[in-house]
Structures are given as C-alpha cells and as structure tokens.
Design a protein around this nucleic acid. Sequence first.
RNA 1: GCCGGGAUGGCGAAACUGGUAAACGCAGCAGACUUAAAAUCUGCCGAGAGGAUAACUCUCUUACGGGUUCAAGUCCCGUUCCCGGCACCA
Length: 877
Amino acid sequence: MAGYPFDVIEPRWQAYWKEQKSFRTPDPSDPDFDASKPKYYVLDMFPYPSGSGLHVGHPEGYTATDIVARYKRMKGFNVLHPMGWDAFGLPAEQYAVETGTHPAEKTAENIDRFREQLQRLGFSYDWDREVDTTDPNYYKWTQWIFLKLFERGLAYEADAPVNWCPALGTVLSNEEVIDGKSERGGHPVIRKPMRQWMLKITEYADRLLEGLDDLDWSDSLKEMQRNWIGKSVGAEVDFRVQGRPESVIRVFTTRPDTLFGATFMVLAPEHPLVAQITTDEQREAVDSCVAAANRKSERERMEQHTKTGVFTGARAQNPVNGAPIPIWTADYVLASYGTGAIMAVPGQDERDWEFATKYELPIIRTVHPPENFEGDAYLGDGSAINSDASDREIPGIAAHGTSLNGLGVAEAKAKIIAWLEDNGVGRAQTNYKLRDWLFSRQRYWGEPFPIVHVDGKPQAVEELPVILPEVETYTPSGTGESPLATIKEWVETTVDGKLALRETNTMPQWAGSCWYYLRYIDADNPDQLVDPEKEKYWMPVDLYVGGAEHAVLHLLYARFWHKVLYDAGIVSTEEPFLKLVNQGMILGEMEYTAWKDAAGQYISSASVNGQEDVRAVQVGEDDVEKKDDGFVLKSDPSIRVEARAYKMSKSRGNVVNPDDIVATYGADSLRLYEMFMGPLEQVKPWSTRSVEGVHRFLARAYRLMVDGESGALAARIADEEATPEQLRALHATIKKVTEDIEGLRFNTAISAMMEFVNAATKWEHVPTPVAESFVLLLAPFAPHVAEELWQILGHSESLTYAPWPEHDESLLVSDTKEIAVQVNGKVRGTATVAADASKEAVLEAAKSIENVQRHLEGKTIRKEIVVPGRLVNLVVD
RNA sequence: GCCGGGAUGGCGAAACUGGUAAACGCAGCAGACUUAAAAUCUGCCGAGAGGAUAACUCUCUUACGGGUUCAAGUCCCGUUCCCGGCACCA
C-alpha cells in the first residue's frame, strides 16, 4: 500500500532533523536565543517505558502536542517541547525479581525502544533535554526536593495502618487500591500498621482547591480534584457522656444548625470510647457488633448499605438543650473521617433517618420543610423550628440556652457556632476527605530516601544523590521491608562517629513525575534543580496533554510539590500547568458478537443472560444489519448481535501496534489518522480501514505536486497569478486550519485540508504560492511529506521555521451568496443573490422562485424575515 | 445515590452566537481505464411516498415526551439509556 513513497521520505527527514538538530531549543543564556519571541511550553505526560513498547494511545496525545509545537514554531514562538521517561516502577522490578537482572538494564532497553519508536513518528522533541527519573543525576533532585519537604516539616514518619498486599510483598497507597484489591494485578489487600513516611498534603488542601479556579482545565477534571480534596465546612461539637465527666465525644458536623434535632449519637466501632462507655448489660451485644465490623473487609463494609448498630447503654448530654440522648455504635460511621463519631439528626439526614426508623429512635425536625414536601429527611433550606432552649439553664454548660427558631440555615449555623464557642463546647471547623500522602514503598526500584536514623530520629543526608545500591536479590523481604533492608553494610553507616541507619523504604513512582517538567528546562544542570532565569522564562507550562487516568493523583501531587517549591522560592509560579487536556482513549476495532448455544444454534443476545453453555462468536460487519436500535444477523433478523468496541488489551487480542501501521502506511498517515478520528478528548474506536482513507489523502496531496513518473515537480504547478476562486479556497483553508489548531480541533482542520486538495485536483494549474501555502498548513500534521514537497517546490531549507500563512479576510468574500428560502420555516428553494443585495432585492428574488410561489398561492404573507447572506423566511396565513 | 460528560446516516463524525442537518472520511453502489485484477479517476449514497425506474415534488428524521421562537441538533422543563469519576465523607 504505497500511494506515495513514504518509506523513502520519512527516514530521510528524520535523519535530517536529527543531524541539523532542527528542534533544539535555545535557552535565555544561549548565544542564539532570540528574546524578542514569545515562549510556548507544550508538554506531554511522559510515558512509563514498558516492555511492550508504544501502543496507539501514546501517539494520540503526542501528535496533538506536536502539531501545536510545530505550529507555534512557525508562528514565531520559542517552543519548549521535551520528552522523557517515568522509568521507576513495579513492572521492571517484577521482571528483575523473575530474572535476577538489574532493573536498570531492562529499563535502559525499554527506553531505547520507546525513543526509537517516537522518533519514527517524527515528533519534534528537543532530545537534548531528555530526562530519566531513574538516572542518579535526576533523582538527586527528587531527593533534594524531599529534603525541602522534610526541612519544612511537610514530611514525617508515622505508624499508620497501611494497605499491605501480601502477594506483592509491599504496601500500597490508598490510590493504588481499588475496591480492596491492588490496582496492579488485582491482589487482595489487608490493613496492617507500619512505620511510613507521610507528606502533609493536607496542609495545602485549601490552596490546592482555590488554585483550580484560574486554571484552563475541563470542568470534570476540576470537579474530580475538588471531590478528592473534599472540603466541608462545619463545626466540631463536644458532647459529654452522662455519668462520666472525663469522657467527651467530639463530633464533626456540617449542620450545627440542626443540633436541637440530634436525638442520638453514633460512634464508629473502632472509636476508643466505645469500650469505655458500654454498660455491662450491653457489653455482649456491643462486643459482637465491633468484632463483626473488624472481621469485615473495608470492601464488604462499603458494599453493605443496610445500617446495623447496637446501643452502648450510655447516654450523652446534648449541649444545646441538655437533653440526654442514647449513644450507639454502628459501622455506617467511618473511623477515618472527621472524629469517628457523629451526632445523628434524623430529621435532616437520610442515613440517620434510616437508622432512626429501623431502631425506633425519636425524630425531631428542626428545619421547616416546604408545604408540598413529601419525603423523609429534609435537607434543604428553611426556617428553624423546635430549636429553642432560651428559657433554660443548660446544666454544666451555660446559664441560658439559645434559640434558633425562625432563622434560615446559614444564620442558624452562624448563631449556634458563636454560642458553642462562647460556652466552650464547640467551634467552627473545616474538614477534608484528602488524607496525608503515604509516601514510602517497600520496593527496590525507586528513589532511596536521603535520610538516616540516628538514635531513632530521622536526619537529612546532605550529600546527594544517595545512590540506589546493588543488591543480591530483588525479592521483597516479605516482612514489609524493602530489599534494601537486607544490605547490612549499606544500611549501617556513621554520622559524626555515631551509628546511623539508612532509611530502607524507597519513594513511590509519583515522586519522579511530580517535577519532571521543571527539569526539562535545565536538564543537565549539576548544581541546581533548575536555573532560576530559565525557569522564569519557560514556566508555566502553556499546554499539558495526557490521559485522564492521571486526573487526580499525578496532577494533585505535582501541584502540591510545585506549591511547596514556590513557597521555598525555587519556582516563580503558583501553578505549574495553565491549560490541561485529557485525550480520550482509543478503543479496539468495532466488534460484532453473536451467541451460539450448546447445539451450535444462534441465539439472540437478548436471551443470553443466565443461559449456560453459550459461546460468543465474532461475526463480520457484512453479516449484520441495523434493525431498530441494534444490530441483527442478515441471515436471521431475529438474532440480535452485540456491537461495540472494547478497550485494547492483550487478552482480548485487539491491540493495534503502531509499528505495523507505520510500516504499511507511514508515520504521517498514522499521525493524521489519529487526529482525524474525532475530537481529541473523546473516546473512539480504532479503524484500520479509515487509516487508508487519510493515507489516500496524503497520496493525493503528493501527486498534486509531484509527477509520479519522474518524482519531479508536477507540470500542474505553475508560476502564474492565482484566480479569485483559488485564493478563496486557499484562504478559507488557512483560516479554518489556523483557528482549528488554536482550538485543538484537529479533525476539522484535516477535513478542511481534504476539501482544499479535492478542489485543487480539479484545477488545471496550481499557482506555486498557493501550493506552498498549503504545504505549510499540512506541515504540523504530516511533517515528513510536507518537508519533501517543500523541497520539491524549490526550497533548500527545512520548513520548521517558515512563517505560518496568514489569511486575508477580503479574499474570502464572494460576489454572490446562495440563500435558503423558507415558507413557514420549511426550505422551499434557494436563491443566488448579490452579497450586498438589499432586503427588497433579496425578497423579490425569493418570491420569484417557482416552488416558493406555489407555496404562497392563495396565502397571505404575515411576516417577512430576512437574515442577510443566510435565508429568507416567509410566514403566511 | 451524587458529580461531570454524552446520545446526529451502515460506521467515525461536521454544523460559528438559534438560520439550507449530515461537511470530511470509511463502507456500499454504478461507471471510466485495464485482457483481467489492484491502484487511480468520475458520479450516486438518511428513511419513506408520489412521479416514468427521469426531472422534480411532498412527508418524516439529530435518544424519547413537552415547551419557547418566524425558525431548535443548538435554548428551557421532564424521561430513558451510555461513558467517566466518587461512593454511608456526617
């Protein structure tokens, strides 16, 4: 399938770019730096160099950023467009465990493969800036940043129940555990306390939240981050346990205004007070409830949505009215959120309502529901009722109670918080779902911590990097410690003559990716993380493109580190990534699945559910047809088949290898196809047949300008004046392509170029300047063939820095316009009128259309609407 | 359950701020070239009806049901389904 000689063109230009260092980007300190140009930093999420090489999902985002980078260069920007490797990680370590080879070996091999594959796609990276998170010259600075965190009190050790995964022999972060199983491999995970490094990301929760407002990120992405941070504003309130003056139950609530409706309390089964306050009569029931909760995995507790609980026998005093209320324990209250205890207000909380009705606990509404309210708990706004204790003393708390009656929710909250504060039984409080970041892993293949313990106290190691030592076996120690713990001579060192023990945990994979975008700016600097002058010039990142799987974690962690570095005066911006776009996943080819029963007869997909001995068979696209909202077999329309595209996976066998596409159609075709598939952010199925379509387009563009026999410039390309029609076609294309690149609408930009080529193919002659402009438009998308055409058109230099064509609006206007003529909103014909025709002239032309006249016959025109250049609508009768 | 996004031909999709729905591409059909095929080129290509199987005309059509408007894929209200995220967060 060689519509044009891409197999010759592509390697030639790749070699040229490499030799000429076409994409080398000068820094402010370099002699060839041009300070008059504006800067543009366009960044890809760097890949983990896996053993299986690039898949077609990688080039999607990479092509998008490459188009922008090439376009911006032509627009006269200094463009920073780098690439590197997020190379620490579990797969390389597991490979090392299996084979006994050092993970660095396999990693280097994988990186070479990835680099070669990326270069074969013609991406315009400045390869001099390549970074590798496993390179000691890189992780030296990861360790250095960790010390900054440590110095600032943002890194601390804690014994915390962690997610211990026996199968992986390591601890996982909350984020790596999905539904109680490890994200990688799906192994079961249990809770186990262990000494860990934690980072105080919670201290930055508010700034991480507020910073989102000014970012050009998608709403859904910002929402995900907001939800993850999970800020809630409310109050802490202290309840005294009756008969136990030393015991106070502190609760967090977002609705302190409903305190008068708190008719019972619930403690999480893990709450330390449960054991203390339980009365003897209730002890047995409570113990079995607590034991049952402990037996259940985190997952089971989440799945079970019916609420069960037990009365502890103890009562607490409601601080606003002195009323005694029963204390229960139930596992619908989570120990890990807030204080692990709640005041239950069934009148205004659905969960509490459910619990109260089940155990026949009293319900008091304290917010007046609207007239037509039908439901149980009322969560909305309204005026407070049943909330008056102003006539009373609250024993042990206040001489006079207060009243909220008649106040709206907001006022009631403010008033009651003030009252609680005055009487020392509560205060305004803000809570977050975000937890501190569990920052250590018990693995070998990660950054060592620059920390030693002297007399059990952690202390910074100033001399960096702390090199990852050689080790005999990569197998986890199984005790929860990393393989590093087994190297006694490494672990034991001295500081000022005293025995010092090195930290044997390593950092999680997120560490290296938290700041890599800074290192690209000054990749080889041995003395600084980044030169401040260069950092100031290049930051922030103007466009960041990557997969949605990093929507929360990587982006939140990187923003956190960036803010810490900002506070430490190392970077000049508060936020690292101005604009962020998630490319949509590319699914496998559309599959049509029919079902056969044990006898080999087709059965309809609707009746498959519950049937045994059914097997799925793939049927071809030609064997099915559309019927109603689904597909059926052509041979038997009563058999419904399932039509859908699946995520690419090795097990499904629907993975498309970019190498194969490049070999058959060329890199330019792959790039162009991935952009032509649909909007960048959308999920879309792969279709190899459609690759041929864009390949044909490139071949047509090539043949438009190159003689097939001789390989020389086609005779059709002529030095002559362009006609108005040609100029209009060209300038419309320039306008469309330019605007679409700016808006990242690459699919429609490509459509516009296809339309241009379709039109130009019909012209007898194509004026040279018109052909040249078109080649420049094509260049960001299909750079190899564009360079080739540019050379054939007579240029000796690369078009990398050729000025981007500008469109001339005056050439777009045509003398005449075709307008639609409607009668009562239905199109009954079209009229061609002068572009500057008067309203009267347009109406006259419209009414003279025969078909329009027929629809006007015998009717009275009530209204005439004329939209200049667009349409006429005649409203009759 | 909550939050966010979506639903347009056989398929991927397009349609600016409400103004000729289906651009562009794939697949399909017909023709040209060819001994033949591939490649290439040209034309057609949402559904239905009338008409001569033509030109042409009419009706319907952007998940479904309402509404606003001279005019709705686009705006408003309600419903269904799909995708992503969170999920007893007090």
